[in-house]
Simulated assay, not measured.
Amino acid sequence: MEAYEIFAKVYDSIMDQTLYDRWTDFSLRHLPKTSQKNKLLELACGTGIQSLYFAEAGFDVTGLDLSADMLKIAENRASSAQKQIVFKQGNMLDLSQVGKHDFVTCYSDSLCYMQDEGDVGDVFKEVYQVLNDGGVFIFDVHSTYQTDEHYPGFSYHENADDFAMLWDTYADTAPHSIVHELTFFLQDEDGRFTRYDEVHEERTYDILTYDILLEQAGFKSFRVYADFEDKEPEKDSLRWFFVAEK
């Protein structure tokens, strides 16, 4: 059973829906304004909610995700909304099949799931190759404050009629890394509940590391902001936003 197969079933229920508005607003503030319909590639698109927001904002959207289960939900969502969105199953470490794009986004700290900084750098190189000249890459990651101070000991429990979830987070051994332990109880057709367990590992790096990796990938400039706002990161910022230009 793939990592997100069970998670996909309840992901939209537990996700803070207001975040999609904030990611959209941030993107629209930092992507160049043009008269043409720009091609946008959304990495780690999940169940397609953000892809739909981008399509409604006028972009020609392609969504990429590892999880076939999440993409099925995404395709149904786009069809119901009567939006033409291309969804592809794939790994952001290999973007050779997605074509060229004007913009690329990678939100919801999805880059933090990369195994190490070498993989993060490889993703940056892949993104650079699929961006048109002058194209923009926007991504967000956990800050080191978030992984080191905020998340360890974090606990979130959700109860609904047909599922329950326990989400606990601990510090991991590598610097600025965390482990999310998730337990789901999902109701079967016969009314009984089945338990599923998952482990999600995330890791971030300091801003200088991201700076070096972006430069090594070829990006000519980048800016960094914090917590969905157009402000510089502070000591206790939780989420960093990078806007890089090819």
Rank of each mutant, 00 (worst) to 15 (best):
Gly134Ser: 12
Leu131Pro: 02
Phe87Trp: 03
Gly135Ser: 12
Phe124Cys: 04
Phe103Ile: 04
Gly121Asp: 03
Tyr128Gln: 11
Asp116His: 00
Phe137His: 02
Gln129Asp: 06
Asp122Ala: 14
Asp109Ser: 13
Gly121Ile: 03
Phe154Glu: 06
Pro152Met: 15
Tyr156Met: 08
Gln97Gly: 10
Val98Gln: 04
Asp119Cys: 07
Asn132Phe: 03
Ser143His: 05
Gly90Ser: 11
Val123Thr: 09
Glu149Ser: 14
Phe103Trp: 05
Asp162Met: 15
Gln89Lys: 15
Glu126Tyr: 00
Gly134Asp: 10
Gly118Met: 09
Cys112Glu: 05
Ile85Arg: 03
Thr105Pro: 14
Cys106Asp: 10
Phe139Ser: 00
Asp116Gln: 06
Phe139Leu: 11
Tyr145Asp: 07
Gln115Thr: 07
Ile85Trp: 02
Ser108Thr: 12
Asp102Tyr: 12
Gln84Thr: 10
Phe139Val: 06
Gly90Pro: 00
Ser108Asn: 14
Asp140Gly: 02
Asp148Met: 13
Gly90Ala: 01
Tyr151His: 11
Gly135Met: 11
Val104Ile: 15
Asp109Ala: 10
Glu117Asn: 09
Phe154Asp: 00
Gln115Asp: 11
Gly134Val: 01
His101Pro: 00
Tyr151Lys: 10
Asn132Thr: 04
Gln84Lys: 14
Tyr107Asn: 00
Phe139Gly: 07
Asp94Lys: 02
Leu111Phe: 05
Leu131Lys: 03
Val130Gln: 00
Thr105Ser: 14
Val104Gln: 04
Gly134Cys: 12
Val86Glu: 13
Leu111Asp: 05
